[in-house]
Write a protein that binds this DNA or RNA. Structure first.
Lengths: 195, 195
DNA sequence: ACAGCCATGTAACTTGTTACATGATTTT
DNA sequence: AAAATCATGTAACAAGTTACATGGCTGT
């Protein structure tokens, strides 16, 4: 939902036409997470569909402007004043991968952890190197970019720490993974009857 | 892609029918991230479509079994032996929200940070409380569950740290957000010609 | 003239997700 | 007999994403 909400927040600053929305987004966020132009338009369509934005083609220039509605403003205000809940909702691929791997026989978890840590560590170094180019931001764009890079760094560090922690835990508690739960429960739908 | 890959990894352990796959998944991961039964079947369909799994209805019981193919095994092996790349790909909603907010006039960033930190902190306490119930795992399921909880804790901690760090940075470097980039570039598509 | 950017879209996908229909079997 | 669970699916939709088509305008 981040693109959708971002575009709405941009339109909250004033009416824009599609390409302009893209420019505004790219200006602020795009250096790290660019967005395809096509997605701007499809997202705008959905915002119009949901009554959060109005399409305005009445201008004398050729551009199609998009203007936020009252409902849209409410939505933006709600988005900015309420926290993002990540833990419960979003399923994290790495977490699920490792958690699943420890329950499956025949998977070398130490190897999985090692490979991941090496990769994340490389990412971390890359990020740190990139970050050092721009310390002391002078514009809001630079500041925004720094925040994004910082976030990625903090997340990557947490990932490495979690991997270390998990590795230690695995060594400590050596429990055995288990195969598929014996036999199927064999209840409903046996001996398929013809329709 | 985590559900898809997980189901494939489960099928790599042996052929299952749909409901059984669900049971296996729930057994291992489901306590924190349950999956809707319907999604099992649609995901299995897509795996069959992609040639990673074969549908087998030849059994004398009524169940429809799904068996991994050679290509499927290759896929699983590749998944387990290669790292998950998160930073570049996935767009993080909180990060984008804050980064965008600092560039937009009229947004009380201190407030946004404060609300988020309070929420994340509550999540963190909740997680810690939950975790303390099961220390020293005795089965692979408990271990998997602990890894998931640990991951959420590490991520939440990183989030709080990032928020603190960002707050300090904002105070230090007080740069001004900027409104929508002046006027549209007014190039292509002026004076829409009738079709 | 032509390359390249401005500008708007559409069509075709992906995964994830839920709600619902349909039966059969087991349990109470 | 009724409720719960087993089991298989389908239909519909959300959001994200990319590739492509179509023009007009700008600079060389």
């Amino acid at each position: 939902m981040s693109v959708r909400q971002s575009l709405l927040a941009i339109l909250d600053q004033g009416a824009c036409y599609g390409y302009q929305v893209r420019a505004e987004f790219d200006h602020r966020i795009g250096s790290t997470w660019p967005v395809n132009v096509g997605q701007i338009y499809s997202t705008l369509d959905r915002l119009v569909r949901d009554g959060l934005v109005d399409r305005d083609e009445s201008g004398d220039d050729g551009q199609t402007y998009f203007e936020i509605t009252a409902a849209g403003r409410t939505e933006v205000a709600g988005w900015l004043s309420s926290p993002v809940v990540r833990s419960t909702s979003t399923r994290d691929e790495l977490t699920i991968k490792l958690a699943l791997a420890v329950t499956l026989p025949g998977v070398d978890i130490a190897q999985v952890i090692q490979v991941q840590r090496a990769a994340t560590f490389r990412t971390l170094q890359e990020l740190t190197r990139t970050k050092n180019a721009t310390e002391n931001p002078e514009s809001a764009e630079e500041l925004a970019w720094l925040l994004v890079v910082d976030s990625l760094i903090f997340q990557a560090e947490a990932e490495v720490n979690w991997l270390d922690h998990s590795e230690a835990r695995l060594l400590r508690a050596s429990v055995k993974p288990f195969p598929l739960s014996t036999e199927p429960v064999r209840k409903g739908r046996p001996a398929r009857s013809e329709k």
